[in-house]
Design a protein around this nucleic acid. Sequence first.
DNA 1: TTAAGAGAAATTGTGTACAATTTAATTGTA
DNA 2: TACAATTAAATTGTACACAATTTCTCTTAA
Lengths: 150, 150
Amino acid sequence: MSDENYPELRLENQLCFPLYACAKEVVHAYKPFLDKLDLTYTQYIAMMVLWEKKACNVKELGEMLYLNSGTLTPLLKKLESKGYIERKRSINDERILNISLTDKGQELQKEALFVPMSVGSCIKLSAEEAKTLYMLLYKVLGLLKNEEIE
Amino acid sequence: MSDENYPELRLENQLCFPLYACAKEVVHAYKPFLDKLDLTYTQYIAMMVLWEKKACNVKELGEMLYLNSGTLTPLLKKLESKGYIERKRSINDERILNISLTDKGQELQKEALFVPMSVGSCIKLSAEEAKTLYMLLYKVLGLLKNEEIE
DNA sequence: TTAAGAGAAATTGTGTACAATTTAATTGTA
DNA sequence: TACAATTAAATTGTACACAATTTCTCTTAA
């Protein structure tokens, strides 16, 4: 059966594809809710870091979000232009750009509270399943990070 | 403890973030191997569909890959310019663009055989874990797809 | 038979995403 | 001290990714 050749190259036999597709679809599921806040998904996760930490620099943010300055620089300028954050060079070390929440950015957190629950109600996994998925994803992330070091 | 406010908005308490980060890092892990084939990740998964089906149209490909024509049109033109595929309007219905493998595209499959194993060796999950992860990802994809219909 | 509606792909505009390079600042060391 | 090496962001160039619109084709119903 020639159709059965190279089964390892079939989309359905790969982990990477459902991961790739699932991530895209989950981001897509956020869109209608984030639209109400005038945030994109990437802007939203950047704001989440700031809501938690209040302030950080570009390098730290990049490490947390797995994003580099090529992505972050324009994104942070956008968030600044919306009035949610401030960008200021560090006084001690001018290479470093410190990001901090404005009052308006802080306020936005309250308006964003409905988002996780709204999306959660679209993805009806059991607590057990969610926990397993969470654990496995962080395991893969860990494995890939080790790979870089070796 | 003011730091503990709004725990539902903490990055670490969300499923979406590890999913997003993990998908990006897995695509990143493919890069060194796909570079040898001069393919990007998206081009690679498009080729995987064609290696399996030999031919399809843009709409079908989009449904399988969760991608729309805005992404696929330039990507398929690129694969055509590399000589891996042919793009031809359907004779029966000129709206439809049929994609088919060229001999060169078919040949490329043999060279791509090492890719899944190479990436697999970076992501050392047990067979059990991989199966669970696979199942959960397809479950989420299914839940999100149902959401659209309702 | 033809105009309205539906479909498929292409196009446009915005926003990531990253590799590679550049710029500017700091650090380490001879 | 002085300069090479390092570091942090910004910039540049390429490639997605998708919403909204457009173009062209096909179907359908009056």
